[in-house]
Design a protein around this nucleic acid. Structure first.
Lengths: 198, 198, 198, 198
DNA sequence: TATGAATGAGTTTTCATTCAT
DNA sequence: AATGAATGAAAACTCATTCAT
């Protein structure tokens, strides 16, 4: 019985991710979600309180994974040599791309739907984006102190790196069938490090 | 009498840009627009056919300005020296930033609202973003042939440059009161060219 | 096993009386009843057919007690002297008040919820109120024939007496912590008999 | 145009009074009201915010009329003789009955629907009923001081009078085609004054 | 017998669009 | 051209009842 409940819940969640991804939050109707999940309208409300709540649930699931990755990267721009940093940065970017690719729809919901003017989500998104920039900015500053990288302003530079990362990654994920994670990670790494040396 | 008509139309357009920008397309009600414009509900439909139509109108107004700028930059990455290219790229980026800053709300509607899953606008946005990438890709290829810049794949590189540009620009426009266009243009130019040399 | 069934049934009944009393029929949800009873949603339908049926059941439980009391009061207004009648009326009113007080929630459901426009219960309530008036009217007529009480029209007078009784009793039960049954009975008795003499 | 608006509003109000009266607040659907009013569903919400708001509007319309009547009766139980008081009480009761009869449905909504457990209206009704009792209690006390009427406790006596009045009046209005206001007023007056003398 | 997950019909409310004035 | 009242389709959410375990 508990297993049945869980199965239903997962069906709804999975359907919601698909439908939100396809139509966006605003255009998604509960009826779309339950139709895709193959359950009745009322069943939705047994498991989730509202459209907003399930959306937040989905976003925060990804949010946690994402922030955990960020946490582990404090020494991103430190290292004995520029090559050591390159290696570290590559590993980090590959991890990020892997995470975004594996959870493409959830990632896109958080970063793209969230960043749009859906109003009630502006805050959620702006927070995570600002957090992303702030962290990378901090890591950059640490690295700069060690003397291997170079830039004028940490926040600006972080914004460049992240803009490059997220905007282009989502583009590739949208238009390509599948992407070569290793190759893309290397290219990003190189482009970024070039930008950081001068 | 014709002047009155035009004035009314402009009031509606201007209100619509504001309200779309504030609440997003889906959350915007015609009643919000006409309230802000100070006209009656029915007046809206004398000037515009539908909510969708006025949104498209606003977007394409910016679209034209934007594409004109793109058209004029065919020789972006050609030049006698890397310094000449740097100068040209700087001028182009400054023009772009100036355009986006002056038409911030319209730009954001086209690039951000458009890129979200509002469904009916996906196509419009994807078109313009793809066009942007394709053009820059082409310009990069031309530049590469001349031998002053270097990269592996034009599309990937264009995507990097554009991601860096639009994502970070919108971030600054959103969080800063006002930005130093010259300084930001130089920083972008330098970061990009570093990435393109190696 | 049969004892368990009975216990469950009583839990549901008791919870239903409480919840109906607190929220009214329409606003009461089966889920409220079972939550208060501490049983599962489905269990309700093992013991009662529907929300309407359990409500009727509760009302008729009180209805029977009430009508029995009425039955035993046929000679309410007969007696050797006005003082004998006063005594008899006092005893009757005290019995009624005692019954209504002991079964306050059920009484209120039948008389107040029933009298509201809940639609499907109009009939039930109207019946019992009319029955009440008719009976008292009959008893008054018998008493009038004996010559000790006086009034113009039995139905009108019965309506006065009953209106005075039920409306004020429910008021006191609602606003007072506890009422002095004896004192209230005497006051009602006196007021009524004064009204009946002239 | 303004006239049309007002006509529509009145149609909705009038239909709402009828339908609330027929089915009670809870059972009444907006669709019932608009069907009876002959307007579209959305039209309702142009004129009233919600079902609750229109109900409160209707009730308070009657409430004002009722409280005004109460205000004008401060010297209800004062006078040179018991006959003078009888006359005054008669006039007051006749005014009340006339008001309740002319606005039967509204009165019943406020006093009966309000007194039922509709939950959100409990407060409104309890207030008006308590106010009624408090006022009459005050007027009784004033009269008692003058020495022409007699009773033990003003609140109890007020509750008796009012219970007699409202409960029986609503009964007659419900079951009789039409009532003889003068005759009923005299009977109530006499019954009450008898109860108040002893 | 008891459970509680699932059902789906029913209701309120919103809002783009129309149309008589 | 402008007005603003009216429209009605559409969508979120509730809850009495059913049914498999």
């Amino acid at each position: 019985m508990n297993e049945r409940r869980e199965r239903t819940r997962q069906q709804i969640l999975s359907a919601a991710i698909d439908v939100f991804h396809e139509n966006g939050y605003q255009k998604t109707r509960i009826s779309d979600i339950v139709a895709k999940a193959g359950v009745a309208q009322g069943t939705f409300y047994i498991h989730f309180q509202s459209k907003e709540q399930i959306f937040n649930h989905i976003c925060s699931e990804f949010r946690v994974l994402f922030l955990n990755l960020l946490d582990d990267a404090a020494d991103l721009f430190t290292g004995a040599s520029i090559e050591a940093i390159r290696e570290k940065l590559f590993v980090f970017i590959r991890k990020l791309i892997t995470l975004f690719t594996a959870n493409y729809k959830m990632a896109r919901l958080l970063f793209v739907e969230g960043s749009s003017y859906s109003g009630q989500f502006k805050g959620v998104y702006e927070n995570i984006y600002s957090e992303f920039i702030e962290r990378i900015g901090t890591y950059l500053s640490i690295g700069k102190d060690k003397g291997l990288i170079e830039f004028e302003d940490a926040e600006t530079t972080a914004t460049f790196l992240i803009g490059l990362f997220d905007s282009s990654l989502f583009y590739f994920l949208r238009v390509k069938q599948d992407i070569d994670i290793d190759k893309l990670s290397w290219r990003m790494t190189d482009f970024m490090l070039n930008g950081l040396s001068g």
